[in-house]
Amino acid sequence: MSAGSAALFHSRADAAPLQPVPEEPGRLAWPLTPRPHVTRNFEPPATPFGPGHRGVDLEAAAGQQVLAADRGVVVFAGQVAGQGVVAVDHDGGLHTTYLPIAPAVAAGDQVYRGQPLGTAAPGHPGCPTAVCLHWGARRDTEYIDPLALVGAPGRVRLKPWAEGP
């Protein structure tokens, strides 16, 4: 929960404790525009170092701009195993990765939602099209499905306390 949304809640000794809220649509924007075709879905690993697909593959065009999914700070922009990678840290322990990409940003850069990070490049293994962008998301140390975080933000409804003030 962000500091801003945490400020909306008040604690009371007799109130039920707040429960964690599932990931909400709208936290992230799509990293490609227009909305891309998903060529491979997220497949969480059964164990921390087990096999899985720790992100989604999105159909792209060579040279297509890859956009920051949200504001944050670039923590890595460079080559890993011969592929360009950009990694961004966001508020709330969220971390996103984009590859293969020709980076246009550098580590330490502040980026904003929708800002170009670089351009999509060919070479993603297992991609059924000429170019795919692998887009990953992690909250702290847990990999999560980035598709669960895109979309229109949900409506916020404030409910009154069961009893008066």
Score class of each variant (00 low, 15 high):
41 N>H: 11
63 G>T: 11
10 H>M: 14
67 L>Y: 10
49 F>C: 07
44 P>I: 06
104 A>S: 15
133 L>D: 04
38 V>W: 06
131 V>Q: 02
39 T>H: 06
131 V>L: 07
58 L>M: 13
83 Q>M: 14
79 Q>K: 13
34 P>V: 08
5 S>D: 14
146 P>Y: 01
115 Q>V: 05
53 H>P: 05
8 L>K: 13
56 V>I: 10
105 V>S: 08
18 L>V: 13
38 V>C: 11
111 V>L: 03
15 A>L: 12
35 R>L: 09
50 G>R: 05
64 Q>N: 13
145 D>F: 05
60 A>P: 03
161 W>Q: 11
23 E>D: 14
103 P>E: 00
8 L>F: 12
135 W>N: 01
90 H>K: 04
10 H>I: 15
104 A>I: 08
75 V>M: 05
3 A>D: 15
102 A>M: 02
135 W>S: 01
100 P>T: 11
123 G>I: 03
9 F>T: 12
76 F>A: 07
68 A>G: 07
24 E>D: 09
71 R>P: 05
104 A>T: 12
117 L>Q: 00
54 R>T: 04
137 A>K: 00
16 A>G: 10
23 E>M: 13
16 A>M: 11
138 R>Y: 05
129 T>C: 09
45 P>Y: 10
156 V>W: 14
64 Q>I: 05
40 R>W: 04
104 A>E: 11
157 R>I: 15
28 L>R: 00
145 D>K: 05
48 P>I: 06
68 A>S: 01
66 V>P: 00
78 G>H: 15
147 L>R: 04
21 V>P: 03
64 Q>V: 07
46 A>Q: 12
11 S>Y: 12
63 G>P: 07
51 P>D: 02
61 A>V: 10
78 G>Y: 14
38 V>S: 09
143 Y>T: 03
26 G>P: 03
10 H>N: 15
45 P>M: 10
66 V>D: 00
114 G>R: 02
25 P>A: 13
12 R>W: 10
57 D>L: 06
15 A>V: 09
144 I>F: 01
144 I>C: 02
163 E>H: 14
7 A>H: 14
86 V>F: 04
48 P>D: 09
27 R>I: 03
128 P>T: 01
143 Y>E: 01
132 C>V: 02
151 G>I: 04
102 A>R: 02
55 G>P: 00
50 G>K: 06
12 R>C: 09
151 G>M: 06
124 H>Q: 11
43 E>S: 10
54 R>E: 03
21 V>F: 13
16 A>F: 11
33 T>Q: 15
124 H>F: 08
112 Y>N: 10
124 H>K: 08
36 P>S: 07
74 V>I: 07
157 R>Q: 14
61 A>Y: 06
140 D>A: 12
130 A>G: 10
77 A>V: 08
60 A>W: 02
89 D>R: 00
158 L>Y: 14
6 A>R: 14
150 V>G: 02
19 Q>L: 15
111 V>I: 04
137 A>P: 01
121 A>H: 07
